[in-house]
Design a protein around this nucleic acid. Structure first.
Length: 860
RNA sequence: GCGAGAGUGGUGAAAUUGGUAUACACGCUAGUCUUAGGAACUAGUGCUCUCAGCGUGCGGGUUCAAGUCCCGCCUCUCGCACCA
């Protein structure tokens, strides 16, 4: 192609230097633009429901679609998206029909908050951001079928989000209630339990308050058991399954009814240890318990009132702080222990939560840390009922033990005692077996503008009625002010023309529901819409749904473990119960990509120093510029304050999308978190540059490859095939580097080797591979070619290195023919000079031969 | 406290069913070349007291053989957390 040496003699040195430079530099810019244009114009990745592909030759490969933020893609996006793209391209080349779509999770607070600040309609901002995301995604060369692109804020899309909500409503799975809910004072909206992390709003970090407002709630608890059981059949990371199990929090125990002294009421508690009932020395009800006022005696009224006031002013965060001292107040009333008739004082304390069980407990201080602490605080009696290895007056015994002080349970173990107590309770009608969940119903309404309107109408005569199907989509009206009222009503309240409507049933005046749906609504079913994105008759054609579902591979970050992934499973199960989808579960296989972190620097006092405040010395140490203090390099999350945020756009621009894709796959195992190292990135860039020089500067010959090269090519095909299939992209890439390094040593490169190499590269660096394919004289697109095969026989050597161990220690190495038998291996080992010097004069106890690997001679 | 996962060179990391620890890449050292570029090429690079010994967080164990299996610890990351 281009001969470097002649340029030394050229007259116009300057120009030639520029030429050498530009010619030998890998021209990713032109190559990538060229092939992106080709793919787009030729709709190379358009997917149809082609019936000629049998069931097992179809794959649905899904990415978690992005929220189109103003900041654009971050480095985490190309990680998961490259992984699914590589797999999709690989599967296509292996004869699969692959559905690989992309869209946008486009409703959400940032666009709305921006609208409040600037008055720009969220739709305008969102559209602009989507355009930018689309540009970025296309610049990475992902093989999406862009004809299937969706956006949750489009009317055509949320039409069906509303339609599915109606289904939930019709089934009694959506209900209206006025209960104390999590309220974010900063976002001015209610939140689901799943959106509260450590007592703070997941989105903005503000302390969450309790607020009593009217809400639409989805009865996800009705599906708790199925959401739990069906996890078993999913090919998901154990950690995500564990998080969902934990969140659903099923526990088995007993409901126990306590009669109240001098009152015609019973107090029901939930306990997992009904066998410890003889040790119950007091009871506690939550401050919000409905019986609080009834149980409060006149003498205790002032104290209780004061306590309730105190509790009211605590945030959730303060209430659940484990380190704080237990607080509480005596109600003045007593309950009767059903098993022994003893009087038990009833206390009110905020360590008991109204949201779990019945909001009331029987306290067994001898065997529960929290109850013990409370008993000590308020000087309540502690009775040992499980044989303890400690003095229960000094600390609680929370391990198992044989029952004592428990009359007819004495001497029994835990399970025997529980069973016996349960029968006793049921026989005496003062209790029964019970199951409890931590999972709460899903607070579904948001007091905000930028979301799907809930398709319901409130009629003074007919009550709550649904908007008829032919009036869907119920579109979001224009508003003048996006600011939420903060009183628990959405900005839609102010749009009289929209709010006031006719009742669809009686035709009389009625009002629309003004709350909107949470951002999660759209993502609960988007994977179904990709299957049939332009259908205006239904959300998804049932035949097409059967063609593709369930999703075969779903890749995304771990942050949705109990949010999106739980909600979507719930909606899917509801649709399944309606017969609208054919699978019980939406996502058969889930893979969490690890987070891409960055480096930062840490001082002796453990504080972190931003990257730009540190310099590296000649001997490889890191010094804080200002103070001269030596700092250590540590791995940290990317953050603006540490100045270590990597913007993928910069790297795409300066080094090309293929380098970004390949580096993110080369960094380490997909599932693990790993730091971005720009030096490592440059290594991958240099690798692609080398590949480019091989294809453009070496002489390409039609000769068959040497036996040695042929072996390496076959081995490379084998390794890349197996590793790509298993998502072990980092090791597949390292093998391709080995091949490139060998090819680079040759003067003349056989064409067949380069063809195979281009095919192997094509899922990883599709632009470069297309260009190579064309240079090698083929018609595009390489993505339509068949994946190369390998000959297993050619992957092994005729001669193998056999390791000689003496007593398990490596002492020598031999070259022997492949498949050499036990006797000849031992004979060869004994004939070896080095080995001889070790075994001479010693007694051989044992000889172990691992075929083609090693021989171990055990001597004494 | 409960649950999940991870500890291997100076760094990111490799290592099918137990069978040569450190592939590949970065960095570093030396050299070649060069109008100097996050260039290319060649050689080297776990540690040490170098005919050998020691090395996969620590301590034991099983085995001819342990990064891998078993037991007991330690550290770190993530999630949940007064859940009765």
């Amino acid at each position: 192609m281009f001969d470097r040496s002649c340029n030394v003699f050229a007259l116009n040195n300057f120009l030639n230097v520029i030429m050498i430079w530009s010619m030998s530099k890998y021209p990713f810019n032109e190559i990538e633009a060229k092939w992106q244009k080709y793919w787009e114009e030729n709709k190379t990745f358009k997917t149809t429901e082609d019936p000629s592909f049998p069931r097992e030759k179809r794959k649905y490969v899904l990415d978690m679609f992005p929220y189109p933020s103003g900041a654009g893609l971050h480095v985490g996006h190309p990680e998961g998206y490259s992984a699914t793209d590589i797999w999709s391209r690989f599967m296509r080349m292996n004869g699969y029909n692959v559905l690989h779509p992309m869209g946008f999770d486009a409703f959400g607070l940032p666009a709305e908050n921006y609208a409040i600040k600037t008055g720009t309609h969220p739709y305008v901002t969102t559209k602009k951001n989507i355009e930018n995301f689309t540009r970025q995604l296309k610049s990475l060369g992902f093989s999406y079928d862009w004809d299937r692109e969706i956006s949750t804020c489009d009317e055509d899309y949320y039409h069906w989000t509303q339609w599915i909500f109606k289904k939930l409503y019709e089934k009694g799975l959506a209900y209206e209630a006025s209960t104390p809910i999590n309220w974010c004072p900063s976002c001015k909206t209610g939140l689901a339990n799943e959106e509260v992390k450590e007592g703070r709003c997941e989105r903005c970090g503000a302390k969450v308050e309790k607020k009593n407002i009217r809400q639409w709630i989805l009865r996800i608890t009705a599906y708790a058991d199925r959401l739990l059981e069906d996890l078993d059949d999913l090919d998901w990371p154990e950690s995500v399954k564990a998080m969902q199990r934990n969140w659903i929090g099923r526990s088995e125990g007993a409901a126990v009814f306590f009669k109240l002294e001098n009152m015609d009421e019973t107090l029901e508690v939930y306990t997992t240890r009904c066998d410890t009932l003889f040790g119950a020395t007091y009871m506690v009800i939550a401050p919000e318990h409905p019986l609080v006022s009834k149980l409060t005696t006149p003498e205790q009224k002032d104290a209780v009132g004061k306590y309730l006031e105190e509790v009211k002013h605590k945030s959730d965060l303060e209430r659940t702080d484990l380190a704080k001292e237990k607080t509480g107040v005596f109600s003045g009333s007593y309950a009767i222990n059903p098993v022994n008739g003893s009087r038990i004082p009833i206390w009110i304390a905020d360590y008991v939560l109204i949201s779990y069980g019945t909001g009331a407990i029987m306290a067994v201080p001898a065997h529960d840390d929290r109850d013990w602490e409370f008993a000590k605080q308020f000087d309540l009696p502690i009775i040992e009922v499980l044989k303890s290895e400690v003095d229960v007056q000094k600390q609680a015994w929370t391990e198992d033990g044989i029952h004592v002080n428990s009359q007819w349970l004495d001497g029994l173990n835990k399970q025997e005692a529980i069973d016996k107590m349960l029968s006793w309770l049921e026989e005496h009608k003062c209790g029964h077996k019970a199951v409890n969940y931590k999972l709460r119903d899903w607070i579904f309404s948001r007091q905000r503008y930028w979301g799907e309107p809930i398709p319901l109408v409130h009629c003074p005569k007919c009550g709550t009625v649904t908007v008829p199907d032919d009036e869907l989509p119920l579109t979001l009206p224009e508003v003048e002010k996006y600011e939420p009222s903060g009183t628990g009503e959405s900005p839609l309240v102010n749009v009289d023309s929209w709010v006031n409507c006719k009742c669809p049933v009686c035709g009389g005046p009625a009002k629309r529901e003004t709350n909107t749906m949470p951002q999660w609504a759209g993502s609960c079913w988007y994977y179904l819409r990709y299957i049939d994105p332009h259908n205006d008759k239904c959300f998804c054609d049932p035949e097409k749904e059967k063609y593709w579902m369930p999703v075969d591979l779903y890749v995304g970050g771990t942050e949705h473990a109990v949010l999106h992934l739980l909600y979507a499973r719930f909606w899917h199960k509801v649709l399944y119960d309606f017969g609208l989808v054919s699978t019980k579960e939406p996502f058969q296989r889930l893979v969490n990509q690890g987070m891409i972190t960055s480096f930062a620097y840490q001082k002796k006092n453990k504080s972190l120093v931003p990257v730009d405040k540190v310099e590296e010395t000649a001997d490889g140490k890191f010094i804080e510029k200002e103070t001269g203090e030596e700092v250590t390099q540590v791995i940290a999350k990317m953050s603006k304050s540490l100045k270590n945020v990597i913007n993928p756009d910069d790297y795409i621009k300066n080094y090309g999308a293929d380098s970004v894709r390949m580096y993110e796959m080369f960094m380490g195992p997909l599932r693990e978190s790993k730091p971005w190292a720009t030096n490592g990135f440059m290594g991958v860039y240099r690798f692609l540059d080398r590949v480019w020089r091989i294809i453009t500067e070496k002489t390409i010959v039609d000769d068959a490859p040497s036996a040695e090269l042929d072996k390496l090519v076959n081995r490379t095909v084998k390794k890349v095939t197996e590793d790509t299939k298993d998502l072990n992209f980092n090791t597949a890439i390292s093998q391709m580097m080995v091949l490139a390094n060998e090819l680079n040593k040759l003067e003349q490169v056989p064409k067949s080797a380069l063809e195979t190499f281009a095919l192997l590269l094509s899922p990883y660096t599709p632009h470069l591979a297309e260009e190579m394919w064309e240079i090698l004289g083929h018609k595009p697109s390489i993505s339509k070619e068949k994946w190369p095969e390998y000959d297993e026989a050619k992957c092994v050597d005729d001669e193998v290195e056999i390791v000689v161990q003496i007593n398990g220690k490596l002492r020598s190495k031999l070259m022997l023919p492949l498949g050499a038998d036990r006797e000849s291996v031992i004979a060869a080992a004994k004939a070896d000079e080095k080995t001889k010097s070790w075994i001479d004069g010693k007694t051989i106890v044992k000889e172990i031969v691992v075929p083609n690997k090693l021989v171990n001679i055990v001597i004494r």
